[in-house]
């Protein structure tokens, strides 16, 4: 394992009765990156995080965090890890501040670290109120504050924007970006793809426990490497013409639209070529698909 790898799983598998929750999952997360772990509900994201934290045992395979096997050396693996898994879970009878103090004391940290973490998530005003009186957004922010207590180098966030209004979602996104700028690695589980696209450099897409795609967002989406042409004339003829060009890779045809593997800056050349051959073009532009479109395509969801 490279020293730059902070999370690595090798053929991680976990079955619940007859259901395969995580199936032969192998992934790597580099130190200092924001990594998106995407998948529809029930894809196995939370089970994977739980295995990374030693809360759920894999049936087979291994998980390494900070170069330590989570099952063999859990203390070393999780020494500098903050995690928010599933819904925020705290003691309802304690205030937000006291909940963080419990965690701080258990980690042998001074109580003031609780106040510092509350300040980061801007929860100081309601820090003295009982957790049970918090709104969903406040609970989410408290959970993020809890992950920051020990100033961890790796933060695992499982659906951190669940239940938040649009303003709260933007706040959390900005917070994640700020944490990433501080050099931390962030492993972000989410199904809000628009958010993930804005903060993550690399992603893995999971469905029914298996990784369907993994890599840099730009590479997966072929950003800047694809040209989209809507042909006003005969698309079949356009297809045949473009197939003869050596700097054009694969061409995908969808009705009157051609998706051409070619650098975006060659769009004028493609336009000129088709015009010379009397094939009128209705629209031509560098193709820039969204992560959401890619996700739906890969997972086969409508």
């Amino acid at each position: 394992m490279s020293t730059d790898t902070i999370i690595q799983t090798e053929h991680l598998t976990r079955r619940y009765d007859k259901r395969l929750a995580v199936d032969d999952l192998s992934l790597e997360v580099e130190r200092g990156e924001v990594f998106g772990f995407l998948g529809p509900n029930g894809a196995g994201k939370t089970t994977t995080i739980a295995m990374l934290l030693g809360l759920v045992r894999p049936d087979s395979g291994r998980a390494f965090v900070r170069s330590h096997d989570v099952q063999q050396e859990p203390e070393a693996a999780l020494a500098s890890v903050g995690a928010m898994i599933e819904a925020p879970a705290f003691y309802p009878y304690l205030s937000g501040r006291d909940n963080l103090r419990v965690l701080a004391r258990a980690a042998n940290l001074p109580d003031r670290t609780a106040d510092a973490a509350l300040a980061i998530v801007e929860l100081e005003q309601r820090a003295g109120d009982r957790f049970r009186t918090y709104s969903q957004g406040m609970k989410q922010r408290l959970a993020i504050a809890a992950t920051l207590l020990a100033d961890p180098e790796l933060i695992l966030l499982d659906e951190p924007t669940n239940g938040l209004d649009p303003a709260g979602t933007v706040e959390i996104r900005e917070l994640i970006s700020a944490l990433a700028r501080g050099g931390r690695t962030i492993f972000l589980c989410s199904h809000i793809l628009h958010e993930v696209e804005q903060v993550c450099r690399r992603v893995a897409i999971l469905k029914e426990g298996r990784i369907l795609a993994q890599g840099a967002v730009d590479d997966l989406l072929h950003r800047g490497q694809r040209v989209r042409v809507r042909v006003a004339g005969d698309p079949a003829r356009a297809y045949d013409i473009l197939r003869q060009v050596d700097w054009i890779g694969a061409i995908e045809r969808r009705d009157d639209v051609l998706l051409i593997d070619a650098p975006g800056e060659r769009a004028p050349d493609i336009n000129a070529l088709l015009a010379r051959n009397d094939v009128p073009v209705a629209e031509i532009r560098a193709d820039d698909p969204s992560l959401e479109a890619f996700f739906l395509e890969v997972t086969g969801q409508p």
Partner: peptide
């Protein structure tokens, strides 16, 4: 989970 994720 909150506790044991920190104190394995």
């Amino acid at each position: 989970r909150l506790q044991l994720a920190r104190h394995p």
